[in-house]
Computed example of a mutant assay.
Amino acid sequence: MKIIYDPRHVFYTPKSKIENNKFVDHHDTSECIENLISTLSIGYKENFIKPKDFPRSYLYLVHEADYIFWLKNKSKSLSSGEEYFPKVFGYDRVYDNQTPIMSNTFEMAWISVKNALTGADLLLKYPETSVFSLTRPGGIHAGISIAGGGCYLNNAALAARYIQSKTNGFIAILNLNLNHANGTQEIFYNDSNVLTISIHINPVDNFPYTCGFEWEIGEEEGRSYNINFPIDRGSDGRTFKRVLEKAILEIDNFEPDFLIITLGNNLDTVSSEAKLNLSNSDLVEIGKMLSSTTYKKLIIYENGTNERNNETVSNFISTFE
């Protein structure tokens, strides 16, 4: 399985976020992916490839032009090392205080998108059945015209729209990153050609708090094509795998041509940020359940917490070989 990685992600260096009206260290650091790369290089060194270049016009398959204009120009207006947080929500196109804008934010988010687009391109043009894209910053919380949750451009949604622009294929997007994929849901909420499913911690007490509930099923043409599986914080592997079985059944009923999987902190079994009681063996079984599906799969790994069980991630990837 090809692994798409761009070392330039180390230049994405958010320093701060605001919690309880205080500046604290930002959770997204380059060390997470760099440590993971060191582990993956032991068994997959020959599998690494760099992302291709793409026209930026692909961004408009998902995001509104005025949002791209705002993000690009806000980034350009800042000096090196400066961080901008929203002053007026609504005017500023960011909905929280954990998504600072920096002078290179737009460029770094675009590089992250290219990793996802390259993965989609490999599935379209080559006999690859599974591709693993390492993206940073992440994308699942970025909506059509707004940033949030440390996300600026929606990697998975752009990969899906890219595939749609080249084929007549149907696409399923399965979010296993334990925060609800609110941006992805918004983008496809009225779309019957893309099935969106998210397994995540119950938003009653977890980010993004305002959406990700089971009654959110899509609207208009997309009604019944959006499915949420909120689960309790601290759930064990048995519970998670039973929910995943239901999600896979829904995907099988949809019969997509491509399956896009977003994941990140669900593979975290060791840090203080861990939200589920999953073991290494649980995650290997989860990988086997997903790899046994017959669809071409793009796995988008979005950076999460500071500490990471890199061996767990490596073992998860090995199930797709």
Rank of each mutant, 00 (worst) to 15 (best):
M1W: 00
K2N: 11
I3T: 03
Y5A: 13
Y5E: 10
P7M: 11
H9N: 03
E19N: 12
E19W: 10
N21D: 14
N21G: 10
H27R: 15
D28I: 14
T29K: 14
I33K: 00
N35L: 13
S38E: 12
S38W: 00
S41L: 08
N47V: 00
N47H: 12
P51K: 02
K52C: 11
P55F: 09
R56F: 13
S57H: 10
L59N: 11
Y60G: 06
V62I: 11
H63F: 07
D66T: 09
Y67V: 02
I68T: 08
W70Q: 05
N73H: 14
K76S: 14
K76Q: 14
K76G: 02
S77G: 05
L78H: 03
G81L: 03
F85M: 11
K87S: 14
V88M: 11
R93E: 12
V94K: 02
Y95F: 15
T105E: 03
F106E: 02
E107I: 09
M108L: 13
W110Y: 13
S112E: 03
N115G: 10
A116F: 05
L117D: 01
A120K: 06
A120P: 08
A120Y: 02
L123I: 10
L123V: 04
L123C: 05
L124H: 01
K125P: 08
V131K: 01
S133A: 15
G138V: 09
H141A: 15
A142N: 05
I146C: 11
A147G: 11
G148I: 06
G150L: 05
G150V: 11
G150M: 00
L153G: 06
A156K: 06
A160Q: 09
Y162T: 08
I163P: 04
A172S: 15
L174I: 00
L174S: 01
N175D: 15
N177R: 04
L178E: 10
N179S: 15
H180S: 01
A181G: 15
A181T: 08
N182M: 03
E186I: 07
I187N: 01
Y189F: 15
N190M: 04
S192T: 00
N193M: 08
V194M: 08
L195N: 02
I199R: 03
F207E: 12
P208H: 04
Y209E: 05
C211H: 13
F213C: 06
N226I: 04
I227N: 03
N228D: 09
F229N: 01
R233I: 14
G234V: 04
G237A: 06
V243L: 02
V243P: 02
L244A: 09
A247E: 06
I248T: 04
L249K: 15
L249T: 13
D252C: 10
D257K: 01
F258I: 07
L259I: 06
I261T: 06
L278P: 05
L278G: 01
D282H: 08
V284L: 11
S291R: 02
T294H: 13
T294V: 14
L298E: 04
Y301H: 11
Y301D: 09
E302F: 06
E302V: 06
N306Y: 08
N310R: 01
N310K: 11
V313K: 04
V313S: 05
N315D: 14
N315P: 03
E321A: 10
